[in-house]
Amino acid sequence: MPRSRMVFWIFFAPVIMWLMLLIVLPLCDLLTMSFRGENDYGDMVWTLQNYINFFDEPIYWLTFVRTCLYAVVTTVIVFLLSMPVSFYIAKLARARVQGALMIMLLLPFWVSELVRIYGWMILLRESGVLNFFMLKIGLINKPIEMLYNDATMIMGLVYTSMLFMVVPLVSVMESLDDSLIEAAHDLGAGQWTIWRTIIIPHCKPGITSGSIVVFMLVLGNYLTPNLMGGKNSLWFTEQIYNQFIASFNWNQGSAFGFLLLVLSSLIIWSGLKLTRQKLGEVAS
């Protein structure tokens, strides 16, 4: 059927072009760049030096480990916060309230992340709103610097990524039959046991897909750690940025970029293996 095949290609071509021109080709270019470097005479040659640098310099891989750990911590916090929130939206709220709550969750995302982070900075900085009120009511007698530390940074990351956990959790919880919860209650289970044995196992696909999205977003986030984390909070994306923009070492930068891609995929793969799940099941 040549005609239907042509129609297929007409609709498929933009997708292919998009993938090839904007994702595959630049990545191929970055990949080749990451294996190139100057030798002692200043000539460009093929080399593994860019990758060796990552493992040789503790600052690089320590930053990566730190970034990963914080990403995991953020994901766990987001999960713990999202479970009750999603349960309330999916099961307890009335239909009309449900829609309003979802919109309230979505609304902040209509504003750019940069603006939202500056919003937080206005609230939290030394001369900010929160300090002003705490001074006013006499809770403190000297302003506290609440910005530029790891706790604030994690709070910011949790705030920016929570929606991406709540949405899959709400949809998966809506498919949970209420009578399962009642049956468990009837058979003698208390609240905690119902969460552990019924709700969480049922929500597993939503938890996994939400966790993957949140983990990847946090790992690849640049704005929040940079603005709220201050000078001491090194984030791996900042290292990549520094290589490209500050040191103008594109070869090193692309090597870091690829390491981030490979290592984060590895972490997700091992996470799926640990919880005995398959990516296909989670994505569907």
């Binding site: 039959d177 009578s179 399962l180 009642e182 049956a183 468990a184 209650h185 009837d186 058979l187 003698g188 289970a189 208390g190 044995t197 019924i198 196992p201 049922h202």
Partner: peptide, 18 residues
């Protein structure tokens, strides 16, 4: 319900699929 000596067989059975 979890402290009562009665048990309920639900209309759609509510067996735990997991």
């Amino acid at each position: 319900p979890n402290k009562r000596p009665v048990n309920l067989v639900f209309q759609h059975l509510a067996l735990f699929p997991m």
